[in-house]
């Protein structure tokens, strides 16, 4: 077995950044504000934009949780990669909708 490397104390400390209580508290407050906003906007009829706004606010909230609470902000690039790939891949799954959007473009006789 290789001689264990004892010179990585600083690396260990630097790698895992300890976020201050203030940052966490500010994030928490921001999340609550966004929650109220989400709720308030949903009570106003914006037509098709209701869902856009709701998704936008949810995305911001998610970004706050991922970056600050989950600490991805200070993690390795690899963690960034894996943290984002799931959300990116969901887009591929949502390509399913392409089928539903285009399905009635064609006139089909009854019984098809």
């Amino acid at each position: 077995m290789e001689e264990p490397n004892h010179n990585n104390h600083e690396a260990a400390g630097g790698h895992h950044h300890v976020t201050s209580i203030g940052t966490y508290a500010a994030t928490y407050v921001a999340l609550l504000v966004l929650l109220v906003l989400t709720f308030a906007v949903s009570r106003v009829d914006l037509g098709a934009f209701n869902i856009v706004v709701a998704l936008g606010i949810s995305a911001v909230k998610t970004a706050l949780v991922v970056l600050i609470f989950m600490g991805v902000r200070h993690n390795s690039r690899l963690t960034w990669f894996w943290a984002s790939i799931g959300f990116v891949w969901l887009i591929l799954l949502f390509l399913t909708l392409g089928d539903y959007v285009t399905r009635q473009w064609v006139h089909l006789p009854l019984g098809w």
Partner: peptide, 20 residues
Amino acid sequence: NDSYIVGMWTFLVTEIMFFG
């Protein structure tokens, strides 16, 4: 440490697809 965190995130990716 990084392995554990990346491993956990990889698991969370599966969870994202699950709920997705």
